[in-house]
Amino acid sequence: MQLSVQRIVRRFGPVAALGGVDLEVAEGEFLTILGPSGSGKTTLLKAIAGFEIPDEGTVLLGGEDVTLAPPRQRDVGMVFQNYALFPHLTVAQNVAFPLEMRRRPRAEVARRVEDVLRLVELQSFGGRLPRQLSGGQQQRVALARAVVFGPRLLLLDEPFGALDRKLRESLQLEVRRLQRSLRLTTLFITHDQEEALIMSDRIAVMDKGRIQQIGLPGDLYARPATRFVADFLGESNLLEGTASAASASIPGFGEVPLAAPQPAGPVTLLLRPEALRLGGEVEALPCRARGTVVETVFLGLSAKLRLRLQDGPEVLARVPLRPSAPPPAAEGEVVTVGFSPEDVHVVPRA
């Protein structure tokens, strides 16, 4: 069901944890709230779940005002960071819990528990206690319990934090598959930008109690609206310089032509590390600089190089690797790097 959050404010003493947040989540959409700890994303989630009453603003769920409704009346399924499974109940009893609270007939409870356990591939685990399951299995039980009663909204509060990388990746895809097949409106909270990029229909980046930017993952990555978003989402080189009409003067690179003219004065350009090239092709690029390789990190498919530019700042470059090709450059080597002006994004000034 559609979720609409309007101008939510929540203050803790003099600090505004939420400073007027607006958010629209369409029916069936998977929207991620991405932000560092302390950005207010958990407070926002609590206000939507009903564990926190906002000082100002409205929460609408399918058009119904639920701002002041207690959690049990909201029909919102939630997966907690540590899962919050009931340790004294079996898997099946855990999953049956929301149905029993709704006083559904016993036969229906049994059938729906079985169905949802099959959906998360735990049909043979119904009789076990949570502590007899692995972390990933517990996570799936928590998910089953959150969706079994057909919630109007699914909330996921950093549910993958405690899992190792491999398991996390497979569960991310599984959650996404489940969410699509049930057409569940989902709000996902995370501080992990990679996770946000993988899973979301749209991402809202939060900082200091406000939503900094909301949009498609690709748009946010390519055209961040603020310096914070540029820095937080993915790796970035933020080049400081001086704009004059259709070009900007950047230390190390010289004059960089801009796609759209900028007012004269200081300017920040975003250059993603993968847009910075190295080696033979550089000669053909209009924007070049020479620098010393300070550090190289091997990452499998690519290598990450940190370079100190002559008369300029330190920059990151990410160069693709092929198994047969020699390493791009050694530490201490002086190389030429370059980029194409259309790969540059001007970060708007706040």
């Binding site: 779940a49 009903g50 564990f51 207690p70 959690p71 049990r72 909201r74 029909d75 919102v76 399924g77 939630m78 907690f80 960071q81 540590n82 919050a84 009931f86 819990f97 929301p98 609270m101 709704r102 319990r145 959150a146 009663f149």
Partner: peptide, 15 residues
């Protein structure tokens, strides 16, 4: 006792 469990139960519809 982990109070998140009570929150979870409340969210799942328990009085």
């Amino acid at each position: 006792f982990d109070e998140a469990q009570e929150q979870a139960a409340a969210g799942l519809g328990a009085t």
